[in-house]
Amino acid sequence: MLRFTVNLSLLFTELPLSERFQAAKQHGFDAVEIQFPYSLPVEQIRDLLDQQDLQLVLFNVDADTLLQGGEGLAAVPEKRDQFKAAVGQTLAYAERLKPSVINVLPGRCLDPQRLGEYQTTLCENLAYAAAAFADLGIKTVFEAVNSYDMPGFIVDTSQKMLDALKQIQHPNLFMQYDIYHMSRMGEDYAGFLRQHLDKVGHIQFADCPGRGQPGTGDVDFDSLFDIIATSDYQGWVGAEYRPTADTAASLAWFKTYAVK
């Protein structure tokens, strides 16, 4: 089964965030995701979702300065308290918005000599988040990000995600599998999904190498979406790409695959 969401942080950016909900609905989506929703009050987001009859599937725990080149929150030993405060902020939003999954970005380690310490902190924080969101019936996911776009990222391969899951062993912790990032790392994403979809709580996609919409790169979306559609995967599939033109012109893929 294929259930698509559209990421409002990357698509429909021709509009202010508050207007992207209506645009998503007008183009046929019933669900959306947002990387970081905290620029809008939670009650405003709740109203926007209700007005358009949309479900908010996913958003992220705050990651501090990660997107500006910093290390983020989830793996930095000195930021444990800040990470827990960020989880508290996310819980407040999640109680009203009722997402299916919450994503934790592992972040970077910019001092290779401290990598082991960062990995330990990450596992502790992922376990903390998984327990916190379990109380709301919300899955916790974490994702690997390619080391070309984000050098120093703690988790940059599928195997590192599997290793973390094995170490933490929390029943509410899953992988967020991003086709773009793993394709950028040269991985066999199709083979991985065939073998490990039971450990995946959310899927995101963009074409590779340019991170544009399907059809702009090398990803075989016919095969990819067929694997998902014919599997037992019950989660959502999120469009998280950067449109090469305006968003509406990038949505030909949705007309093709939404009926699978």
Rank of each mutant, 00 (worst) to 15 (best):
Y257T: 01
Q44R: 12
L11I: 05
M1N: 00
N7A: 01
P16Q: 00
L15G: 07
R80Y: 11
G212V: 10
S250F: 00
P209S: 07
C208A: 12
Q26S: 09
W253D: 03
F59P: 00
D188W: 08
V42T: 11
S18K: 10
R242C: 11
Q26I: 11
Q169R: 14
T13F: 06
L40P: 05
L2R: 06
E143D: 00
L67T: 13
T247I: 01
P151I: 06
G210Y: 15
L54C: 12
R80H: 03
T157R: 11
A252W: 12
G72C: 00
L54M: 01
E78F: 12
L8C: 04
L197S: 02
L165R: 08
A249R: 05
A92E: 10
V104W: 00
A63I: 02
Y93A: 02
D62Y: 09
A63Y: 03
G235D: 07
V42S: 11
V6D: 11
V87A: 09
T120S: 14
M182T: 08
P106C: 07
G70P: 09
E19R: 15
A127W: 04
E95T: 15
V237F: 00
L110K: 11
K84Y: 15
F21H: 01
Q55H: 14
P209N: 08
D178L: 01
Y148L: 12
V42D: 07
L15Y: 06
V32W: 06
A129I: 07
D53N: 13
F12P: 05
D222G: 08
P171R: 04
S231F: 03
L136N: 03
A75N: 01
S158H: 15
D232E: 14
N60M: 00
G88Q: 14
T256V: 14
Q82T: 10
Q119F: 07
Q44S: 08
G107K: 00
G210P: 07
P214M: 08
E78I: 12
A131Q: 13
V237K: 10
F254K: 14
G28N: 12
V101N: 09
L15D: 10
D111F: 07
V141I: 08
Q176D: 01
Q119N: 14
P99G: 03
E71A: 09
D232G: 15
A86Y: 07
C109T: 05
I179L: 14
S158K: 15
A74Q: 04
T120P: 05
L2M: 09
M150V: 11
N146M: 09
S158N: 13
D135S: 10
A130R: 01
P37I: 03
D64L: 03
T5C: 11
I138D: 03
G212N: 14
M182G: 06
V32E: 00
W236R: 02
L173R: 03
M182L: 12
S100D: 15
F153I: 06
S250N: 00
I179Y: 11
L15M: 10
C208W: 02
